[in-house]
Each structure stands twice: as structure tokens, then as C-alpha cells.
Simulated assay, not measured.
Amino acid sequence: MTVRRPLRCSRRFLPRCRTPEGSPGARPLMRASPSPWATVVDEEATAIRAADDGMWLPVWQPDLWHKFELSLVVDTAPSMELWQNTVTEFRKLTRRQGAFRDVRVHLMDSSEPSAGDPVLRAEGPGRARYRARDLADPTVRRLVLVLTDAIGSTWHDGVAYEMLARWYEQMPVAVAHVLPQRLWTWGRLSPSRLRLSATAPGVPNRQLRVRACGRVDGDAPAAAKGAVAVPVLNLSQAWLGDWAKLVSTATTIETTAVLAHRDHRKRLAAGPPAEPPEELSPRSRVLRFRTYASAQAFQLAGLLAAAPLNLPLIRLVPTRAAPGFGTAGAGGGPPRRSAPARFPEQRLRWSVRGDVRVPGRSPRGTLVG
């Protein structure tokens, strides 16, 4: 009798920032500083006092601590289910590095419509619900890092931007994008290259000085008037390391960032109306995909179009059929999910558009134009 076992993928999803020793990105945040309230006994100074004065009275000194705690806001929209392993490894990495006093994970479903402040959920069986504004920390000892692909509806209607605006008034905030930079246009985030300067360690984003890269007049870009820059980072040592330097020291970095406003939705409504999506034929869809997909992505799309899709299969095919090819290029856009969310991995199903599958596949199982 043949026993069928679920497919498993043993690839490392964060190969460049997997271990604390090999992750220089967070080292600026790993420096301990004297605590403003916790104290410990200075044994050497206590012994010296006892020898000099004959009085065994403890000598206290400030304990060492890490100034910042990290609030990791994880997007749980349907498209983010492809990145569960990446999110899990990144979460473990931040907790075991020892760079933060505490790491707490908050869940946000960006696909749920929201008329105002988005709802966050805590991890654990209780799944307490609270508003995003409840994360604000006026003591400036909390960092907020949003882990997302920016595809959900709240990124398109401006709600997520206003959520960032509520936080950047009081805390350092950044967005960690799970997709490679060349695919950021799939979502609503359209960051530009900016030069950010901090006048002191741990200042909120609203106190950062913003300048356009390549300009010598020191003026902020015109779009920054009334807006605050929020760094958009890739999950790599270099990107995260620059942000760690900006947060922990008074320095200047060049990075990609979006400009968020507190009235982002009002500004979107006042702008030109969005054009309705263009209806494309199956052949046109395949041709458009070929214009920006790499050769490996196009090959992988042909392989995945030959079978029903689930998470183990999506993760297994690149490692067996196209070694060295990551999940980030697993298609020309977010696949459509055809099963309810939060099922076990083997029960989740995705599908390629039916009208594209038939005319878009050759007899050998690859996509054709």
C-alpha cells in the first residue's frame, strides 16, 4: 500500500538574514544602553565601599537594556498566504537576535474593507481585536514594521496610508515588502528614492528631514509638503541595516520611501478618477505577462498551469524544476484563491484563469504567446 505524504519544502526563505551572527542588518539596534528605571547591584563598588567605610550598603547602577520594542504588523490578506514561511522565519529572526526588548506580532487583513482605522488582531487563542491607533507609543520606545505585499484593498483606497500616518506622528515606522523591488508595482506602494536624515536616535518619522536624491539645494520634493516619508524596505541585510542605522543613530541614509498623508483618502478622491481595468483577451494577457516576466517566471508559470495549485506544490515546483528560483517570481500576478482562507496548507487551492490556461498552453505544457 502506498502512503501519500504531504509535500514539504525545506528551502530557506530568508537565506541572507537567517542567523543572528550572519545578520549585520540589526547590529546597530543590538547595542545596550543604561535603563532609565531598572537598576542592579554593582558588586565591585559595593565591596570597595565596605573595605573603605566598613559599611555593607549596596551600590546601585543602571541596568543595561535595549531601548526599543518591535511591533511587527503582519498582513494576512489572501495573497500573503504564499509568504507564510517567509513571515514565520522573519518573525523568529527578530525574536532571537536580541536587538529588541520585546517583539509582538499584530495581524492585519488588508483585504477587509475599512471605513476608518483598520482592525488589528493579536496572536494566540484569544485573538483580541483592537484598532491600529492603539499601537501608538508617545514614549518613542516602540518601532513599527509592517510586513506586507501591499496588494490588499486598504492599500488602494488610502486607509493603510492613513494608518501609517497615525503611527509616524509618535514612532519610527517602516514597511517591509515581501516582493522583490521590481514587482512592487503590483501593489499600491510606489516609493521613490529619498534621502532621510535623523537629528537624534529614535525620532518619529515626522521629525525626519526629507530630500530628493541628487539634489543639492536641500529642499524636500514638492510631493512631500504636508506628508511624511515612510521607508519601504526589502527583506535583505542592506535594506534593513540602513533603517536600523536611521533609527538607532543620528545619521542620513538613502532609501526608498512613500509619502503618506493623514488625509490620504481625501486626496485620492480629489485627484483624477481611476481608469477602469482594461479587458484583455487571453492571448493579450499572456503577451503582457511575457513583457515583464523573467524567463524563469515564464517557465514556472507554464509548469504551474498544468495542475491544480496549492501551497506545497507552488513551493516544491521551483526547487525541483527550476532550482534557485524563489517564490517571489511564481507568476505574473497574484493567483486567484478558490478555497476559504486559513485552512491547512494541503487544503488551500488556487487557480489560473480558465480562459488563459487553454489558449495559453502549448502541447508541451509551456505558455505560448
Results as ranks from 00 to 15, higher is better:
residue 132 A to N: 05
residue 335 P to E: 03
residue 226 G to Q: 07
residue 160 A to C: 11
residue 19 T to E: 13
residue 270 A to N: 13
residue 280 L to V: 08
residue 165 A to K: 02
residue 152 G to K: 00
residue 208 L to E: 01
residue 143 L to S: 02
residue 242 D to E: 15
residue 369 G to H: 09
residue 184 W to K: 04
residue 147 L to A: 10
residue 298 F to I: 04
residue 268 L to H: 01
residue 177 H to E: 09
residue 14 L to Y: 02
residue 294 S to A: 02
residue 159 V to E: 06
residue 41 V to G: 08
residue 260 A to M: 08
residue 363 P to G: 09
residue 38 A to S: 10
residue 62 P to A: 13
residue 124 G to E: 12
residue 180 P to M: 01
residue 6 P to F: 00
residue 147 L to R: 07
residue 294 S to R: 02
residue 79 S to G: 08
residue 147 L to S: 05
residue 334 P to M: 07
residue 90 F to A: 14
residue 258 V to T: 13
residue 131 R to W: 01
residue 87 V to R: 04
residue 295 A to Q: 10
residue 214 G to D: 07
residue 8 R to V: 14
residue 340 P to V: 00
residue 331 G to F: 00
residue 26 A to Y: 15
residue 214 G to F: 06
residue 19 T to A: 10
residue 17 C to I: 12
residue 74 V to S: 10
residue 178 V to S: 08
residue 217 D to Q: 02
residue 358 V to W: 06
residue 244 A to S: 15
residue 302 G to S: 08
residue 105 V to W: 01
residue 64 L to Y: 00
residue 262 R to T: 04
residue 228 V to K: 07
residue 329 G to E: 12
residue 133 R to F: 11
residue 140 V to T: 10
residue 31 R to Y: 08
residue 193 R to E: 09
residue 149 D to K: 06
residue 291 T to R: 07
residue 270 A to G: 15
residue 99 A to Y: 01
residue 52 D to K: 08
residue 359 P to H: 06
residue 118 P to M: 06
residue 275 E to T: 12
residue 299 Q to M: 14
residue 67 K to R: 15
residue 220 A to R: 09
residue 335 P to V: 05
residue 309 L to T: 01
residue 300 L to D: 06
residue 239 W to N: 08
residue 262 R to F: 01
residue 75 D to W: 05
residue 81 E to W: 03
residue 8 R to K: 07
residue 248 S to V: 09
residue 244 A to M: 12
residue 162 E to W: 01
residue 349 R to P: 02
